Computed example of a mutant assay.
Amino acid sequence: MAITFAESARSTVGVEWEVMLADPRTGELVGRAPELLSELEAASQHSRHTVTGELLTNTIEVTSGVGATVSQAIDDVAQAIREVRAATDPIGVELLSAGSHPFAQWYQQDVSEHSRYHTMIDRTQWWGRNMMIWGIHVHIGVEDRRKVIPLVNALSTYLPHLQALAASSPFWAGERTGYASNRALVFQQLPTAGLPWTLESWADFENYLDDMVTAGIVADATEIRWDIRPAPRWGTIEVRACDGLSTLPELASIAALVQVLVEHLSRRLDAGETLQPLQPWYHRENKWRAARYGLDATVIVDRRGTQHPVAEHIRMLVADLASVATDLGCDQEFRGIADIVRDGASYQRQLAVAAEDGDLRRVVAHLINEFRSGPHSAVRSAP
């Protein structure tokens, strides 16, 4: 099966952000996206950004246009959020983002009226109905499809770093899970989700997709829901491993880190280097450790099995790749990565709020406040 990889300018950026709709008084999710979307979609029709629905009616997704820089893509997202607020504020609906809602129950949520979603639910049943998860997706343009699979393989080494920084789902259906990112382990229950297969070339990806379509497992490449995947329609690599970011500055920082990593690895390919991915069993272990321990995880960083505390390794990356961030014009956003490590990720801030009196409604109020005002309450609290 020949798969066309669209033309895309190198290291351009696109960002998608899944946002929850909630009642500010109770903290409960509200399924009001359908009544809002027709107006919001029409308003964004001629804009760089888009506003669309998602699997559940309690969710709206905002998507940037193609950004030459991270700041351009984030400006698109900020404008989209302003338009969403103009529709939600008058009807008393608040916005928040995290990998999971602290206490919502799956059986109280409605699935959007879209055949694609109902087909997925029909196939996956209980696990599909439990997909009360929210994430961000970062697209980075790749100018040559021959680079795509080597970049996916090499970038997978850094998925636990991204997952730990973005971890924001320590609660599930009213319970503390003991995980920084419960979403990471829930999402991989879908049959085509989870870590990518280690392939050798674009031809291998075409053969893989041909097998999947022939067997009736998927209809097209969009149904491959790997943590990082080729996005042929856009000419990008798409990183999907991260929980929903709770604030816009954190979203910008994660987008910058992904952009910098892809550009750094692309330069190594340009120099004739062969990028060696980690063994698949190391990738699997790293994903679990990042989901369990977040920024307190120790991860495997090379094929020899060398291990580093992920926070320490992130600091090393920020120092080593600062010049790449300068070249890409995302210095400010990239420096925000060090702030997350120093001040704590969303899961840590949520746990700190819950530790005060155990009231998860206060955690929702905290997330609503952070979504409006940015990260605060610097803490270091183990999961």
Score class of each variant (00 low, 15 high):
Met1Val: 12
Ala2Gln: 11
Ala2Leu: 14
Ile3Asn: 09
Thr4Glu: 12
Phe5Ser: 04
Arg10Gly: 10
Arg10Leu: 14
Ser11Glu: 14
Thr12Gln: 06
Glu16Lys: 11
Trp17Ser: 05
Glu18Cys: 02
Val19Cys: 12
Val19Glu: 00
Val19Lys: 00
Ala22Glu: 01
Ala22Val: 09
Pro24Lys: 06
Thr26Arg: 06
Gly27Ala: 01
Leu29Pro: 08
Val30Glu: 00
Gly31Met: 05
Ser38Phe: 04
Glu39His: 06
Ala42Gln: 07
Ala42Asn: 02
Ala43Glu: 13
Ala43Trp: 05
Ser47Asp: 15
Ser47Leu: 15
Arg48Tyr: 07
Arg48Cys: 06
His49Trp: 15
Val51Phe: 12
Leu55Pro: 01
Thr59Arg: 05
Ile60Glu: 00
Thr63Asp: 09
Ser64Tyr: 14
Val66Asp: 03
Gly67Tyr: 10
Val70Lys: 13
Asp76Gln: 07
Val84Ala: 07
Ala86Leu: 15
Thr88Asn: 02
Val93Lys: 03
Glu94Gly: 07
Glu94Ile: 02
Leu95Ser: 04
Pro102Gly: 05
Phe103Leu: 07
Ala104Phe: 00
Tyr107Glu: 06
Gln108Leu: 13
His114Cys: 11
His114Trp: 14
His114Arg: 10
Ile121His: 15
Arg123Asn: 03
Arg123Lys: 08
Gly128Thr: 07
Gly128Gln: 12
Asn130Trp: 03
Asn130Phe: 04
Val138Tyr: 05
His139Met: 11
Glu143Asn: 14
Pro150Asn: 12
Leu151Arg: 08
Val152Ser: 04
Ala154Arg: 08
Ser156Trp: 05
Leu162Trp: 08
Leu162Ala: 03
Ala164Trp: 00
Leu165Arg: 03
Ala166Leu: 10
Ser169Glu: 02
Phe171Met: 03
Ala173Gly: 01
Glu175Gly: 00
Arg176Asn: 06
Ala180His: 01
Ala180Gln: 05
Ala193Gln: 12
Pro196Asp: 08
Pro196Lys: 09
Asp204Leu: 03
Phe205Ser: 12
Glu206Trp: 11
Asn207Leu: 13
Met212Thr: 00
Val213His: 03
Val213Trp: 01
Val218Glu: 05
Val218Leu: 09
Thr222Met: 11
Ile224Trp: 08
Ile224Phe: 04
Ile224Pro: 04
Asp227Thr: 03
Asp227Arg: 05
Arg233Pro: 00
Gly235Met: 08
Thr236Gly: 08
Ile237Asp: 01
Ala241Val: 15
Asp243Lys: 06
Thr247Ser: 13
Leu251Thr: 14
Ser253Leu: 03
Leu257Lys: 01
Val262Lys: 03
Glu263Arg: 13
His264Gln: 11
Arg268Pro: 03
Asp270Cys: 10
Thr274Glu: 14
Thr274Asp: 10
His283Thr: 07
Arg284Pro: 04
Glu285Gln: 12
Arg292Asn: 10
Arg304Phe: 10
Val310Met: 09
Ala311Gly: 15
Ala311Met: 02
Asp320Tyr: 12
Ser323Tyr: 05
Val324Ile: 15
Ala325Ile: 13
Asp327Glu: 15
Asp327Leu: 11
Cys330His: 12
Gly336Lys: 04
Asp339His: 02
Gln348Arg: 14
Leu351His: 00
Leu351Asn: 01
Ala352Val: 02
Ala354Cys: 05
Ala355Met: 11
Glu356Arg: 13
Asp357Tyr: 08
Asp357Glu: 09
Gly358Cys: 11
Arg361Gly: 05
Val364Leu: 01
Asn369Ser: 13
Val379Asp: 08
Ser381Asp: 09
